[in-house]
Each structure stands twice: as structure tokens, then as C-alpha cells.
């Protein structure tokens, strides 16, 4: 009974993780510029791989494995925004432009003021 429940939970986690990864990939191709693509990769992509890792922990069903999977999940969730932020900062400082439809860029004015 509990095994069946764990298997169904694992299946749900696996499918939702893969779905988020697919959404991130679609977003990477459909979104118009670098900064909006970063939204897709850093949120949906991270949640996707994190859910798949959690699924491993749930499927194994013992505490050490689950603790390791949880540690990995935390690691991914905490490092993904840092790398996205670093890349966005580097790209903006170097001067890669925002998409033409962007409504405002207050950072540009700030850079000029320095």
C-alpha cells in the first residue's frame, strides 16, 4: 500500500519535473531576448531538475538517500539564482541590449550617471 503510494508520488514528481523542463526549453526558444530567456531557464529549469532529484529520494524510500536528494535540491535552488544574476549583470554591464518591446530600463540611466 505504502509502496504503491510512493510509486504514484514518484510518477507525479517525475512527470511534473519533466514538464517544467520542457516549459523552460520552450521558453528558451520562444522568448524574445536574453533577459526574458533567463527567467525561463532560472525558474522553470531549476524547479524541473530539482523535482526530478526529489523523485529519486522519494522513490528510494530510506532516510539517507532522501536527505542527500533534499541536499541536492537545496543546492540547485540556491545556486541557480546566483548564476542567473551574475550572467544578467555581466551582460547588462557589457551592454547587451534589452528587447525592443521593453518598456523601461532604469539601470541604463544609472550607468550614465556614474
Amino acid at each position: 500500500m505504502i509502496d504503491g503510494f510512493l510509486a504514484l508520488l514518484t510518477a507525479f514528481l517525475v512527470l511534473s519535473g519533466a514538464g517544467f523542463a520542457l516549459a523552460a526549453a520552450i521558453g528558451l526558444n520562444r522568448l524574445p531576448d536574453l533577459y526574458t530567456r533567463m527567467h525561463a531557464a532560472s525558474k522553470a529549469g531549476t524547479v524541473g531538475s530539482g523535482l526530478l532529484l526529489l523523485a529519486v529520494g522519494v522513490h528510494a524510500g530510506d532516510l539517507p538517500t532522501f536527505a542527500r536528494a533534499l541536499a541536492g535540491f537545496f543546492f540547485f535552488v540556491l545556486t541557480a539564482p546566483i548564476s542567473a544574476h551574475l550572467l544578467a549583470m555581466a551582460a547588462h554591464r557589457v551592454g547587451y541590449p534589452l528587447h525592443a518591446e521593453s518598456v523601461r530600463d532604469e539601470m541604463k540611466d544609472y550607468d550614465k550617471r556614474i
Binding site: L28, L34, R37, A41, G45, S49, F76, A84, L87
Partner: peptide, 20 residues
């Protein structure tokens, strides 16, 4: 930077493969 974002994403997908 577009390519770097995509490569970062590739790492995430490969982690998903490893988990599966």
C-alpha cells in the same frame, strides 16, 4: 550570453536524466 544560458539549462536537463 544566450548560449551560456542555454548551456546552463543543458546542465539542468542532464541532471534530470541522471535522476531518471
Amino acid at each position: 550570453p544566450d548560449r551560456v544560458v542555454a548551456l546552463d539549462m543543458l546542465t539542468g536537463i542532464v541532471i534530470g536524466f541522471i535522476a531518471l
